[in-house]
Design a protein around this nucleic acid. Sequence first.
DNA 1: CGGCATCCAAATAGATACTG
DNA 2: CAGTATCTATTTGGATGCCG
Lengths: 133, 133
Amino acid sequence: MKDEKDAIVVNKEFTEECTVILTAVADALYAIGGKWKLMIIISIARGNNRFSEIQKKVTGISARVLSNELKELELNSFIVRKVTAGYPVSIEYELAPYSNTLQDVVSSLKEWGIQHRQKIKDDRSSGKSQTIV
Amino acid sequence: MKDEKDAIVVNKEFTEECTVILTAVADALYAIGGKWKLMIIISIARGNNRFSEIQKKVTGISARVLSNELKELELNSFIVRKVTAGYPVSIEYELAPYSNTLQDVVSSLKEWGIQHRQKIKDDRSSGKSQTIV
DNA sequence: CGGCATCCAAATAGATACTG
DNA sequence: CAGTATCTATTTGGATGCCG
């Protein structure tokens, strides 16, 4: 900080950029945050298209919560609810194209999650205290 | 041996891998999920090191919640709480090295958040109904 | 099977006041 | 400034039963 004017300008840009990032991340978390949404999308992507299949894959989710999440995901164009006539009527959830935009997010979270689990394990065997994952 | 592109959103054949992905993503969400943690990390990364600075940047967070989140982040090695003697005592939060592992996660979320906001805007001006971000 | 309605318990968060 | 304490309001979620 030798030149104060520059410093101010720089800091202002820095600050504005911070707000941009924060806003973007907040937007993302608003749309796909929470415990379940991404996991539901992943599990549908991997071929679990029925309500009960999804519920089995996404460990710990209750029917009520799953039902609500599916509605929201459909409303936001991440998935499509397909009803096929017949007896009984068959209902399947499929990914809508918009879910493909989540590729990078999902894969980075997956990579991070894997290394994080490893790190936790290392921390514990090296004797550090740690909250459990 | 880079895999065949973590094809998250396609390829029903890889269902056996589904559980691995779900577990990894669940781990990640457990550690950095929720409304605030990433935003706090980002805002510290961009030079907001004081409690009140962070609170100002991370819109909507209360002192109590911020306080709790900071404690958790410190416990999990994402940040360091630095106390500098003096009068009054100065307290600053800094990123710990482990926060750097979040680079990809943050940048993909940021990119996605930006395009998502744009998409919402487009949807609205084209007359679709939409939940608001 | 794929849900929705209801009731109730638990977790979370806001407001406010207060401290070193 | 950097929190803590307390109380209360709100949200969230599980359990259960019912229905097409």
